[in-house]
Computed example of a mutant assay.
Amino acid sequence: MSELKQRITAEMKAAMRAKEKARLGTIRMIQAEIKRIEVDERIELDDARVMAVLDKMQKQRRDSISQYDAAGRQDLADLERQELEVIKTFLPQPLTEEELAALVEQAMDATGAQSMQDMGKVMGILKPRIQGRADMGDVSRLVKARLAG
Score class of each variant (00 low, 15 high):
145 A>D: 15
111 T>G: 07
90 F>V: 08
101 A>Q: 14
52 A>L: 09
116 M>H: 01
71 A>M: 03
79 L>A: 03
56 K>F: 03
59 K>G: 04
23 R>E: 13
113 A>D: 05
52 A>E: 10
50 V>P: 00
102 A>G: 03
19 K>F: 00
84 L>K: 07
103 L>P: 05
136 M>N: 08
42 R>Y: 12
139 V>H: 11
142 L>Y: 13
84 L>M: 03
112 G>Q: 08
61 R>P: 03
104 V>F: 08
42 R>D: 14
37 I>R: 07
100 L>A: 06
57 M>R: 07
94 P>L: 14
5 K>W: 00
113 A>R: 01
103 L>F: 02
15 A>I: 09
21 K>I: 12
71 A>E: 12
135 D>F: 04
28 R>H: 11
106 Q>L: 05
72 G>P: 01
37 I>E: 03
74 Q>V: 01
33 E>T: 10
67 Q>V: 12
101 A>H: 13
29 M>F: 04
134 A>G: 10
51 M>C: 10
65 I>D: 02
130 I>F: 04
138 D>A: 14
72 G>Y: 15
108 M>R: 12
8 I>S: 04
111 T>A: 11
36 R>D: 12
121 K>S: 10
23 R>Y: 11
147 L>N: 15
40 D>H: 12
121 K>W: 00
135 D>Y: 05
58 Q>Y: 00
131 Q>V: 11
94 P>G: 10
58 Q>N: 14
144 K>C: 13
144 K>M: 14
38 E>H: 04
70 A>D: 11
59 K>I: 04
80 E>N: 06
135 D>S: 12
144 K>Q: 15
141 R>F: 14
105 E>S: 01
131 Q>S: 08
88 K>E: 09
133 R>T: 05
61 R>C: 12
119 M>W: 00
86 V>C: 04
120 G>S: 13
116 M>C: 13
56 K>E: 12
64 S>H: 08
50 V>E: 07
76 L>K: 04
66 S>M: 09
118 D>I: 05
61 R>N: 06
36 R>Y: 10
54 L>V: 11
31 Q>W: 03
136 M>C: 10
26 T>G: 01
127 K>M: 05
7 R>E: 09
149 G>L: 09
65 I>P: 00
78 D>Y: 07
46 D>W: 07
125 I>D: 12
79 L>Q: 02
78 D>H: 04
65 I>A: 07
33 E>M: 08
59 K>S: 11
27 I>E: 00
138 D>H: 10
77 A>C: 03
88 K>F: 02
34 I>Y: 01
64 S>F: 02
34 I>L: 09
60 Q>P: 02
118 D>R: 01
32 A>E: 14
29 M>Q: 14
145 A>T: 15
96 T>S: 11
16 M>D: 11
114 Q>C: 03
90 F>H: 02
148 A>F: 08
112 G>M: 10
